[in-house]
């Protein structure tokens, strides 16, 4: 029983972050590999599956609270699905490792600018 409880509680805790769209899956991956000793490949598989019920559960509330933009969904979901398939096919043909550095730079830039970003209210006050 004990070996099921810890994964359950860790899954629940990181699920809160996943519901907010702020990287719960990555934290789960870290917990699995570093704390629970799950092998990296298995952890990645679990992580992919994990997002499905977790996101679906959160969307029930997001929809109810009016946080979903239907116009975005209508345009972004079809193009996202098509490109996910194409990229998955391409990633076997080409070396995705080449793209790690540019993507890493983008993450650094986006993360840094987001940390430094001020709230709109604050910006008005200083302007």
């Amino acid at each position: 029983m004990k070996e099921y409880l810890l994964p359950f509680f860790i899954g629940a805790a990181t699920g809160v972050l996943s519901a907010w769209g702020v990287g719960g899956g990555t934290l789960l991956l870290l917990c699995m590999t570093l704390l629970l000793g799950v092998d990296q490949a298995e952890a990645q598989g679990i992580n992919l599956l994990y997002f499905l019920p977790t996101a679906a559960a959160s969307l029930w509330y997001h929809r109810k609270n009016g946080y979903l933009d239907a116009r975005v969904l209508k345009s972004a979901v079809p193009s996202g699905i098509v490109c996910a398939l194409l990229a998955a096919l391409a990633s076997t043909a080409t070396d995705a490792a080449l793209l790690r550095k540019p993507f890493g730079l983008f993450l650094l830039y986006a993360g840094g600018s987001m940390l430094l970003q001020k709230d709109k209210k604050e910006r008005h006050a200083t302007a």
Binding site: V16, A19, Y50, P53
Partner: peptide, 23 residues
């Protein structure tokens, strides 16, 4: 591997609801 994923998925279901509620 589906079986070892189950406790995480159940936890995720709970956390997802909770997170959605708190959002």
């Amino acid at each position: 591997s589906l079986v070892p994923a189950i406790p995480y998925l159940l936890g995720g279901l709970l956390g997802g609801f909770l997170g959605g509620k708190l959002f």
